[in-house]
């Protein structure tokens, strides 16, 4: 029996589909696990899908005086989240044609664009809490960026390229690559960045309803209906994208398809989702074990992430690899 070979374009599309359709599942599963950790029954695993369907059916309300930006932003953000999966290793160990469209920085820029338009829309709404959330998100974003840059540098000097595929590939070559300090530190730093960027404790309580502590959640308070659904979906996708980068670039780039054969590619999809849920469980665990930091202490948390990332680059130049 001959293996069915998939065209690269199909795999490319599958990457997007996996992220887009898998994201609510991962969110739901993690939310359920988190509830169990807290001793609650929690929502159904598929609850996020129902939420999205419900929101798409609702009418859209637009704040008075806001322009097309308010409605355009969710679409742009969602589109950005669809572009990023094309650039990173989601299902395959080798770069797909569009994977060379942008490097790891390019992916970062696209993600930043999404964050920017959402903040713009929040400002557009004129609502105080949304603006508060937007300004905070931008402030902390300014602190997260250098950390991400240093992580990228670390990846760059290890592999001498700026392609995420290359790092994952070198990781698979042996244990010496896994324990090299530059990699370990960059991975931990990126872990902290993901923690901060997905709105998790100790930076933000993601499931809270207290507007004062909100950062990412606060920005979308004024949205409703289909645009709101897009934003919620987008933030689930963003979470899965960050998890995917963390898993497939730094932590466990195993289980990816090495060929274009149907079997491995189809296997890679559940493998990714299971790994993502596992990572999400770790985050949920952290969520339950620590308390949220005061807003002004968040800089300390980010300073720690920055220190790690800076150390990763330094240790490399020390000859410590």
């Amino acid at each position: 029996m001959t293996e069915v070979e998939l065209a690269p374009a199909v795999i490319q599309a599958l990457q997007d589909v996996t992220i887009a359709l898998g994201a609510p599942l991962v969110s739901g599963a993690v939310a359920t696990i988190e509830a169990r950790l807290q001793g609650r029954r929690g929502p159904r695993v598929l609850q996020p899908y129902y939420d999205l369907i419900k929101l798409f059916q609702k009418e859209t309300v637009v704040p008075e005086g806001s322009s097309w930006v308010f409605l355009g932003a969710p679409i742009v953000a969602f589109a950005s989240y669809l572009i990023v999966p094309l650039l990173i290793p989601v299902l395959t160990t080798y770069g797909l044609p569009l994977g060379y469209m942008g490097d790891i920085l390019g992916g970062g820029f696209v993600l930043a664009l999404a964050g920017f338009v959402v903040a713009l829309a929040a400002t557009e709404s004129g609502a105080p809490y949304a603006q508060l959330g937007a300004s905070r998100a931008m402030t902390f974003g300014a602190l997260i960026e250098p950390t991400i840059l240093f992580v990228v540098f670390a990846v760059g000097i290890i592999t001498s390229t700026d392609l995420p595929y290359a790092l994952a590939a070198s990781l698979r070559t042996g244990s010496s690559e896994i324990v090299r300090p530059a990699h370990v530190l960059a991975a931990v730093a990126f872990f902290l960045v993901v923690l901060a960027d997905t709105g998790r404790v100790p930076v933000e309580t993601h499931s809270g309803t207290l507007e004062f502590g909100m950062i990412d959640e606060g920005r979308v308070l004024e949205h409703s209906g289909a645009p709101f659904a897009l934003l919620k979906w987008g933030s689930a996708m963003k979470q899965l994208i960050l998890y995917t980068i963390l898993i497939d670039v730094f932590l466990a780039p195993w289980g990816l398809a090495a060929s274009q054969a149907l079997g491995p590619v189809l296997f890679a999809i559940p493998a990714l989702l299971v790994k993502a849920i596992a990572v999400g469980t770790i985050f949920a665990f952290i969520d339950n074990s620590f308390s949220k930091l005061r807003l002004f202490k968040i800089t300390e948390f980010l300073a720690a992430a920055f220190a790690l990332a800076a150390m990763a680059v330094l240790i490399f130049y020390l000859g410590g690899g």
Binding site: S160, G174, S176, V179, I315, G320
Partner: peptide, 18 residues
Amino acid sequence: MPSVAPSTFAGTANVIAV
């Protein structure tokens, strides 16, 4: 050229030191 990683021993020792 990707840089050559130090040996597993050296890497582990460095990580512990870090």
